[in-house]
Simulated assay, not measured.
Amino acid sequence: MSDLLHRLRGRGWRMTAQRRVVAEVLSGDHVHLTADEVLARATLRLPEISRATVYNTLGELVALGEVAEVATDGRAKRYDPNAHHPHQHLVCSDCGAIRDVRPDGDPLADLPPSERYGFTVAAAEVTFRGRCPDCTGT
Protein backbone atom coordinates (compact mmCIF):
# COMPACT_ATOMS: atom_id res chain seq x y z
CA MET A 1 0.00 0.00 0.00
CA SER A 2 1.34 3.45 -0.88
CA ASP A 3 2.28 5.99 1.75
CA LEU A 4 -0.61 8.23 0.66
CA LEU A 5 -3.18 5.41 0.82
CA HIS A 6 -1.84 4.39 4.22
CA ARG A 7 -2.14 7.96 5.55
CA LEU A 8 -5.69 8.32 4.17
CA ARG A 9 -6.82 5.04 5.74
CA GLY A 10 -5.29 6.16 9.03
CA ARG A 11 -7.41 9.31 8.88
CA GLY A 12 -10.56 7.28 8.25
CA TRP A 13 -11.08 8.91 4.85
CA ARG A 14 -13.97 7.24 3.07
CA MET A 15 -12.25 5.22 0.35
CA THR A 16 -14.56 4.96 -2.67
CA ALA A 17 -13.27 3.28 -5.82
CA GLN A 18 -12.80 6.70 -7.44
CA ARG A 19 -10.88 8.17 -4.50
CA ARG A 20 -8.71 5.06 -4.27
CA VAL A 21 -7.79 5.30 -7.96
CA VAL A 22 -6.82 8.98 -7.62
CA ALA A 23 -4.69 8.17 -4.56
CA GLU A 24 -3.05 5.24 -6.38
CA VAL A 25 -2.24 7.43 -9.39
CA LEU A 26 -0.50 9.88 -7.05
CA SER A 27 1.64 7.16 -5.46
CA GLY A 28 5.39 7.00 -5.98
CA ASP A 29 8.56 9.03 -5.78
CA HIS A 30 8.88 12.33 -7.64
CA VAL A 31 5.17 12.37 -8.56
CA HIS A 32 4.05 15.86 -9.62
CA LEU A 33 1.11 15.34 -11.96
CA THR A 34 -1.31 17.94 -13.30
CA ALA A 35 -5.02 17.35 -12.74
CA ASP A 36 -5.37 16.36 -16.39
CA GLU A 37 -2.54 13.84 -16.05
CA VAL A 38 -4.22 12.40 -12.94
CA LEU A 39 -7.49 12.16 -14.89
CA ALA A 40 -5.82 10.41 -17.85
CA ARG A 41 -4.12 7.83 -15.62
CA ALA A 42 -7.20 7.33 -13.47
CA THR A 43 -9.36 6.77 -16.57
CA LEU A 44 -7.05 3.92 -17.63
CA ARG A 45 -7.76 2.19 -14.31
CA LEU A 46 -11.41 3.20 -13.91
CA PRO A 47 -12.90 4.30 -17.27
CA GLU A 48 -16.10 5.68 -15.73
CA ILE A 49 -14.33 8.17 -13.43
CA SER A 50 -15.35 11.75 -14.21
CA ARG A 51 -13.27 14.91 -14.51
CA ALA A 52 -15.32 16.49 -11.70
CA THR A 53 -14.59 13.57 -9.39
CA VAL A 54 -10.85 13.79 -10.04
CA TYR A 55 -10.78 17.56 -9.52
CA ASN A 56 -12.95 17.33 -6.38
CA THR A 57 -10.80 14.54 -4.95
CA LEU A 58 -7.62 16.51 -5.59
CA GLY A 59 -9.19 19.51 -3.86
CA GLU A 60 -10.11 17.37 -0.85
CA LEU A 61 -6.61 15.90 -0.64
CA VAL A 62 -5.09 19.39 -0.70
CA ALA A 63 -7.56 20.63 1.94
CA LEU A 64 -6.64 17.64 4.14
CA GLY A 65 -2.95 18.51 3.78
CA GLU A 66 -2.24 15.09 2.28
CA VAL A 67 -1.24 16.46 -1.12
CA ALA A 68 0.48 19.77 -1.86
CA GLU A 69 -0.19 21.97 -4.87
CA VAL A 70 2.99 22.94 -6.69
CA ALA A 71 3.00 25.79 -9.18
CA THR A 72 6.06 26.64 -11.25
CA ASP A 73 6.36 29.57 -13.66
CA GLY A 74 2.70 29.90 -14.58
CA ARG A 75 2.45 26.29 -15.66
CA ALA A 76 -0.50 24.14 -14.61
CA LYS A 77 -0.67 23.28 -10.93
CA ARG A 78 0.83 19.95 -10.06
CA TYR A 79 -0.05 17.69 -7.16
CA ASP A 80 2.68 16.39 -4.86
CA PRO A 81 1.79 13.49 -2.51
CA ASN A 82 5.05 13.97 -0.62
CA ALA A 83 3.39 16.55 1.64
CA HIS A 84 4.60 15.07 4.94
CA HIS A 85 8.32 14.96 4.16
CA PRO A 86 10.18 18.29 4.04
CA HIS A 87 11.71 18.85 0.63
CA GLN A 88 12.29 21.40 -2.09
CA HIS A 89 11.89 21.08 -5.85
CA LEU A 90 14.28 20.89 -8.77
CA VAL A 91 12.51 22.04 -11.96
CA CYS A 92 13.62 21.71 -15.58
CA SER A 93 13.24 25.13 -17.20
CA ASP A 94 12.65 23.52 -20.61
CA CYS A 95 10.19 20.64 -20.13
CA GLY A 96 8.93 21.37 -16.60
CA ALA A 97 10.01 18.03 -15.08
CA ILE A 98 10.06 18.21 -11.29
CA ARG A 99 12.12 16.22 -8.80
CA ASP A 100 12.00 16.29 -5.02
CA VAL A 101 15.32 17.27 -3.42
CA ARG A 102 16.47 17.50 0.16
CA PRO A 103 19.39 19.94 0.27
CA ASP A 104 21.57 20.19 3.35
CA GLY A 105 20.92 23.10 5.65
CA ASP A 106 17.90 25.08 6.74
CA PRO A 107 16.63 27.70 4.28
CA LEU A 108 15.05 29.59 7.19
CA ALA A 109 18.47 30.01 8.76
CA ASP A 110 19.74 31.56 5.52
CA LEU A 111 17.40 34.54 5.87
CA PRO A 112 19.10 37.00 8.24
CA PRO A 113 16.94 38.80 10.82
CA SER A 114 17.58 42.12 9.05
CA GLU A 115 15.82 40.73 5.95
CA ARG A 116 12.73 39.45 7.78
CA TYR A 117 11.14 42.91 8.18
CA GLY A 118 9.45 41.91 11.42
CA PHE A 119 7.85 38.80 9.92
CA THR A 120 7.66 35.65 11.99
CA VAL A 121 8.88 33.29 9.31
CA ALA A 122 7.39 29.81 9.56
CA ALA A 123 8.39 28.17 6.28
CA ALA A 124 10.54 28.60 3.21
CA GLU A 125 10.04 27.28 -0.30
CA VAL A 126 13.13 27.04 -2.45
CA THR A 127 12.94 26.04 -6.11
CA PHE A 128 16.10 25.01 -7.91
CA ARG A 129 16.01 25.43 -11.68
CA GLY A 130 18.07 24.00 -14.47
CA ARG A 131 17.85 21.62 -17.43
CA CYS A 132 17.18 17.90 -17.01
CA PRO A 133 19.27 15.21 -18.73
CA ASP A 134 16.53 14.63 -21.35
CA CYS A 135 16.59 18.30 -22.37
CA THR A 136 20.38 18.59 -22.37
CA GLY A 137 20.79 15.31 -24.27
CA THR A 138 23.03 13.77 -21.63
Rank of each mutant, 00 (worst) to 15 (best):
Q88N: 11
L33Y: 05
P133C: 03
L58W: 06
T136S: 13
F119S: 03
R78P: 03
G65F: 08
V91Q: 00
E37I: 10
G130S: 02
F128N: 01
A124R: 00
V22D: 00
E125G: 11
L44D: 15
G65M: 08
R51P: 09
V25I: 04
Q18I: 05
H84Q: 12
L46V: 14
V126R: 02
A97Y: 04
G28M: 04
D110L: 11
Q88R: 07
D80M: 07
G137Q: 02
V126A: 00
I49M: 06
Y79D: 08
T138L: 08
V21K: 01
G118Y: 02
N56H: 14
A83F: 10
D80A: 06
V67F: 02
H89M: 00
N82K: 11
A52E: 11
P86E: 09
L90P: 03
T43M: 12
D80K: 07
S50K: 14
V121Q: 01
R116D: 02
L46W: 08
D106H: 03
G118P: 07
R116T: 05
T34Q: 10
V91T: 01
H32R: 12
S50E: 12
E115I: 04
C135T: 07
P47H: 13
P86G: 06
Y117W: 08
V91C: 04
R14D: 11
P112Y: 04
R14I: 12
R7A: 14
E60M: 12
L44H: 14
M15E: 15
E60F: 09
V22G: 00
V126I: 05
C95F: 00
E125C: 07
R75M: 07
D104S: 14
R131M: 03
L26N: 04
P103M: 00
M15P: 05
R9M: 10
P107N: 02
V70R: 13
F119V: 06
G105L: 04
A63N: 13
G130M: 01
L4R: 01
L111I: 15
L64P: 06
V25C: 01
R41Y: 10
D104A: 15
A63S: 15
M1W: 05
A23I: 06
R19H: 08
A23W: 01
A68G: 09
D106A: 04
L26A: 05
R41W: 12
A63T: 13
G28I: 08
G130V: 02
N82Q: 13
R116H: 01
A71M: 10
L64T: 10
R116N: 04
A17P: 06
T136A: 13
R131E: 07
G10L: 11
R102M: 13
A52R: 12
A71I: 14
T43V: 15
H85V: 15
L44F: 10
D100K: 15
C92D: 03
R45I: 09
R7F: 09
H32E: 05
E115N: 09
I98P: 00
G59S: 15
